[in-house]
Simulated assay, not measured.
Amino acid sequence: MAVLYGPEHRALQDEHDSRRLADLWQEMLIHGDLAEDEQAFIASRDFFFLSTVDAEGMPTVSYKGGGAGFVRVLDPRTIAFPGYDGNGMFLSAGNIAQNPSVGLLFIDFETPHRLRVQGEAELVRAGDLVESFPGAAYAIRVAVTDAFVNCGRYIHKMKRLETSRHVPNAEGDQPIAEWKRIDVVRPHLPGQDKRPVESAGELTFDQYAAKAAAGDS
């Protein structure tokens, strides 16, 4: 288990008389092996939030979505998820290639419920793991160091949302992202995108904005 509390954490805990409570939570809640119910919860999610840190120590957070079960529990200490087609910046994957420390937040807005996972991630560029995720460009494997359930009292309740049409199907196929059709973007696209974008036709930025406003992006 990682060292959870540093001097500044302790100072704040003492300021608010919560050191005993913080120690209790560390002893009772924080663990390494994912419990069976936590494994099932992760496997049932179709999105999560991923935090990564670059080589200079700057953090970023991104949303990752897919079909239910797109995050796999390989064993109680290891999870993996696919990297689907994105905007070409590779911020999360590039950060992981430089700094493996990651945090993952899984949320169920219906219950509500949430699980925090911290670990050391590995960028997997090719091989059986990548091929096991249809439509994936790469995969991320995470060695879990800490996991713990957070109180859900501040999670806003909401009903189940519709799955994005851009989630790859069982064959790995997905519709072209509409932003790739924008006239100023097209010349900069990777070679693999040029033919499908040419078939779909070009959009001006205003046309794309109108489609996005209508929820068709």
Rank of each mutant, 00 (worst) to 15 (best):
A2I: 11
V3T: 07
L4W: 08
E8S: 13
E8K: 08
H9V: 01
R10I: 13
L12M: 09
D14Q: 08
D14T: 03
A22V: 03
A22I: 06
A22E: 04
D23G: 14
L24E: 04
W25F: 13
M28E: 14
L29P: 10
I30S: 11
H31T: 12
D33T: 07
D37K: 09
A40W: 12
F41W: 07
A43P: 06
D46G: 07
D46K: 07
F47K: 08
F47G: 04
L50T: 05
S51E: 06
T52D: 04
A55I: 06
A55C: 00
E56M: 08
T60C: 11
V61Q: 14
S62M: 11
S62P: 10
K64E: 01
G66F: 11
G67F: 02
G69W: 08
V71M: 15
R72K: 15
R72T: 15
D75N: 14
R77Y: 01
R77V: 02
R77F: 00
I79P: 06
G83Q: 02
Y84H: 10
L91Y: 00
A93F: 01
A93I: 01
N95H: 12
I96S: 02
I96T: 02
A97S: 06
Q98K: 12
Q98H: 13
N99G: 03
N99P: 08
P100E: 05
P100N: 05
V102T: 04
V102L: 07
G103T: 06
G103Q: 05
G103S: 06
L104T: 01
E110L: 13
E110K: 03
P112D: 02
P112L: 01
H113K: 10
R114I: 01
R114D: 02
L115Y: 00
R116K: 09
E120V: 10
E120K: 10
E122G: 09
E122D: 12
V124I: 09
R125G: 07
A126V: 04
A126D: 13
E131S: 14
P134I: 03
G135I: 09
A139Q: 01
A139I: 01
A139L: 05
R141I: 09
V142D: 05
A143V: 12
T145Y: 01
A147N: 15
C151S: 06
R153N: 04
R153A: 03
H156E: 03
K159I: 09
K159C: 15
R160G: 08
T163D: 11
S164R: 13
R165S: 10
R165C: 09
V167P: 11
N169V: 03
Q174V: 13
Q174G: 10
P175Q: 04
P175G: 05
A177T: 00
R181Y: 02
I182Q: 10
D183A: 11
P187S: 06
L189I: 04
G191F: 05
D193C: 04
K194E: 09
P196G: 00
A200S: 05
G201H: 05
E202P: 00
T204G: 08
F205H: 15
D206F: 07
Y208R: 09
A209M: 15
A209K: 14
A210G: 11
K211H: 12
A213L: 07
G215N: 07
